[in-house]
Amino acid sequence: MNEIVAFISENLTTMYILVLAVYLGMEVISKVPTVLHTPLMSGANAISGVVIVGAIILIRSAEPGDLFVLILGFLGVMLATINIVGGFAVTDRMMGMFKKKKKPEQA
């Protein structure tokens, strides 16, 4: 129990950030037209690939001979990269289609 209390007091700032980030995430999204739900989901999904940062730290702090960590880290980096690169690329492709539509109307 003491450890938990200690953890809370050490990480109070983090908890503030957590709460505010939850609220911000809900606010930022709340006024989206249905048209954009699919691209938005795909874009947000790419952002969740930020987990790659953890995988990179993990590989960098591993001993060079620690194959267990290196291999799991490598898999993590690779899968998260697919998530990120694929996610952003596919979102851009979708948005490109919408854009093509709007131009002639504005001209």
Binding site: I17, G25, I29, V53
Partner: peptide, 16 residues
């Protein structure tokens, strides 16, 4: 960056 980025997606995904 992982905490906030992840939570942003978690919250927006829940709303969606």
């Amino acid at each position: 960056v992982m905490i906030v980025g992840g939570i942003l997606v978690g919250a927006s995904g829940t709303i969606l």
